[in-house]
């Protein structure tokens, strides 16, 4: 994992659920991550897929990813090029899914200082998110969890553990 990333902001509100991130009607019919990416945020922000650029950062309010356990709600964003998600808080299954897919997630209030299109920088080592309106701090992830992200996600992590 890079220790520092800079990206353009896509800003969203509170309680964004996994149905609007990746509609349920596709969950058992689409298995290719690239195809999943074509439906990212379809029912929340129909313009997202056409305009997202690699390394863009989602900045949101509380309880990002509530609802279903569907991991496609992480995969579709990662595959669409999203470099990180910064939210005031995350729903717990989404939080685990992001770690397991090695999509960097940051819990802090940067939503208070960033607007759509702003450039922000996440410094994972320092635990800071720098926005045009100030710097927000976040606590580091537990060592066990960080190791999974650094290994590239849960599958590479388990392979390493099992000596594969």
């Amino acid at each position: 994992m890079k220790t520092k990333i800079t990206g353009r902001v896509w800003k969203y509100g509170d309680d964004v659920n996994t149905d609007v991130i990746f509609p349920g009607k596709y969950t058992y019919s689409i298995s290719d991550p690239k195809e999943m990416a074509l439906h990212a945020l379809e029912d929340l922000d129909p313009g997202f897929v056409a305009a997202v650029r690699p390394g863009d950062i989602i900045v949101a309010g509380k309880n990002w990813g509530c609802g279903s356990s569907r991991e496609q709600a992480v995969v579709c964003l990662k595959e669409a090029g999203v470099g990180a998600i910064v939210a005031r808080s995350f729903a717990r299954i989404y939080f685990r899914n992001a770690i397991n897919q090695a999509l960097p997630i940051v819990t802090c209030d940067a939503v208070d200082g960033a607007e759509n299109g702003d450039e922000i920088t996440i410094d994972f080592a320092a635990g800071t998110v720098t926005t045009p309106c100030g710097t927000f701090t976040f606590p580091p992830l537990p060592a066990e969890v960080l190791e999974i992200i650094e290994d590239g996600g849960l599958i590479p992590h388990v392979r390493k553990q099992l000596g594969k």
């Binding site: 356990s69 991991e71 685990r96 397991n100 897919q101 849960l154 599958i155 099992l162």
Partner: peptide, 13 residues
């Protein structure tokens, strides 16, 4: 509840 990748890891380990 857990996600799909996690379920695969539970199956394996």
């Amino acid at each position: 509840g857990i996600g799909r990748t996690e379920a695969a890891a539970v199956m394996a380990t």
